[in-house]
Amino acid sequence: MWRKYVWGYAFVLPAALIFLLFTWTPMVKGMIYSFYHVDFVKGDTFVGLDNYRAIFRDPVIGTAVKNTLYYMGLCIAVGFWVPILFAVAISELRRGQGIARVAAYLPYVVPVVVLYGLWRWLYDPVGPINALLTQFGLSPVNFMTDPKWSMASLVFMETWQQFGSAMLIYLAAILSIPRDWYEAAEIDGAGVWKRIRHITLPAIRGQIALLFVLQLIATSQGYQSQLAMLDGGPNNATLTYALNIVKNAFNRLDYGGASALGVLMFLVLGLLAALQQRISKRGEGAA
């Protein structure tokens, strides 16, 4: 009896140990640390709810939450439709589809830090983008240092970097739509826009919904480009919530406070996910 299952357990054991040690432990420990003042030298001291009280007194948190929502919104407004549009357009190319596909994916191959270095120069007050703007008689923009522009500039850069992979997913779905459907629609008198609206888009509805949710999940935790390009500046204009966690921990060495921020984030995101589940279930029930 025991011998029969020994391989099954033996194969799972290493993974179970690693998940326990490196995923479950930090998750649970994060909750514990949030009630402590963490000090690697003198040892941890229990501080009760002090970390949480400090968070609610900190005016930066409001800014960070607002910036995160702004960032998520911009990523949807600027970045979400771009890969869909290009996927539809590229699927219609009779020649050069391969080149367009490879070019769109190119930035993905280069390490992101290199792209950060490049874009810092492209966005420079005396860089090529401003040279182009002045050539057209427009006034130059301080893409990085003007708080009105800084977040939008980051979102534009990230869209450029990342739309390729989403585009490939949409493109694969669009190319697998049977050509006969368009044929039939055309015979029935549907124009080009109607064919896109009623055949192409519904056929990739699943991918659109999935990538939408994935993008929300990813952007709600975004901090890397904000950190690498601007360190949350100018004047906290690109300080996202996750970046605030990182800065609390590694700049101010307030590990307990950072853990508490993480717990709060988990509660909010978890609540949203649960709510979304409820709503989508109810929607199915109604239908």
């Binding site: 995923t23 432990t25 930090p26 998750m27 994060g30 935790q221 609390n248 853990s259 988990f266």
Partner: peptide, 23 residues
């Protein structure tokens, strides 16, 4: 056991970034 592994997908990594480091 499968649930034990998959449940970790639902916790955003940014929320336990700092405890991971301490761990």
């Amino acid at each position: 056991a499968y649930g034990f592994f998959m449940a970790t997908l639902f916790v955003p990594p940014a929320t336990y970034l700092v405890p991971s480091f301490i761990n």
